[in-house]
């Protein structure tokens, strides 16, 4: 807004007033984007560390929970994202080569990949909700297809009490079901040894649990498994949290790609100025990369 007329003639339109050269502006933008992506990686890094800690404390709940994820859908989504990364890279190259039509084509393909990913994710989520596998304590309310009542305390095979549900009012004034362990002896609530919660109570000996005899395959809800370890709901909480945050980033990516597509249609990008396409591409690659880690962590191992 304070660009003086004298400066305007030496500056291309896209060059903002406080930069001296387009190269300086491009490099500033690129460094800024890399730093921003570093913060994104650290944001997810907290969750990845949490994943390691929770998994380290409760390997059995990850084992019992992960069989309810659909590996095929996850694999398709992984392929979709990898393909969209390739088309994004192609889009950047097309911008650098001044090929506006090809740029728009590849941006559209990338966008299509992003949308496909979210659609598949939507079906995965809604299928689980349909089965009663909800995030939070709703998980314990009404597993579909389960005939016996699950109110009251849930005693699992390991002898521990999962939790006891108490109806009450939530912090936002909503009706919630909160967990409490009023009847439980301290020994079932707290582990017997110093260490993270549940280490002693939940660690099942290999013989305690029917090995992968396939009987878990036809279950539609973890609570139907009488041999389930305590706190199996935690697996799904972590799953929803990490894939949910990733999904938010994919949705943001759709916004960015749409904006780029509009810019490309208006002819804003050229071999002299392709910074937004390049930076948008960097962001998209990082979003893909995070999924490349999420997929094996939840679906495969």
């Amino acid at each position: 807004m304070t660009v003086s007329p004298a400066h305007a003639h030496e500056h291309p339109d896209f060059l903002r007033h406080h930069f001296n050269t387009p190269k300086q502006q491009f490099e500033a933008g690129k460094l800024g984007m890399w730093l921003f992506l570093a913060t994104e990686v650290l944001l997810f890094g907290g969750l990845f560390v949490g994943y390691s800690v929770w998994r380290g404390n409760h390997p059995e709940m990850f084992k019992a929970g992960s069989i309810f994820l659909n590996t095929n859908l996850g694999a398709v989504n992984t392929a979709v994202l990898i393909l969209s990364s390739i088309t994004m890279a192609a889009a950047v190259t097309m911008a650098q080569r001044n090929k506006r039509g090809a740029l728009m084509l590849f941006l559209s393909l990338t966008l299509a990949g992003a949308v496909t990913f979210l659609v598949i994710k939507y079906f995965e989520y809604t299928h689980k909700f349909h089965l009663g596998i909800y995030p939070g304590l709703k998980f314990y309310e009404k597993p579909a297809g389960d005939s016996h009542t699950l109110s009251g305390s849930l005693v699992n095979d390991a002898g521990g009490v999962d939790l006891v549900l108490v109806k009450g009012t939530g912090p936002l004034g909503q009706d919630v079901t909160v967990a409490d362990t009023p009847e439980a002896e301290p020994t079932t609530v707290a582990p017997a040894a110093i260490g993270p919660a549940g280490l002693a109570q939940d660690a099942l000996e290999p013989g305690d649990r029917p090995a992968d005899d396939g009987h878990a395959e036809h279950l539609t809800h973890p609570l139907q498994d009488p041999h389930r370890p305590a706190n199996v709901h935690m697996f799904f909480n972590i799953y929803y949290l990490m894939t949910g945050l990733h999904g938010v980033h994919v949705a943001a990516g759709i916004g960015v790609l749409t904006w780029l597509l509009i810019g490309a249609a208006k002819g804003r990008f050229s071999s002299a100025y392709f910074t937004p396409v390049d930076l948008g591409g960097l962001y998209w690659h990082v979003v893909d990369l995070i999924w490349i880690f999420l997929f094996p962590l939840f679906y495969l191992i």
Partner: peptide, 11 residues
């Protein structure tokens, strides 16, 4: 001094 943490036994 020692923290007393729910879910753990401290000594």
């Amino acid at each position: 001094k020692q923290d007393v943490v729910p879910g753990r036994r401290t000594e």
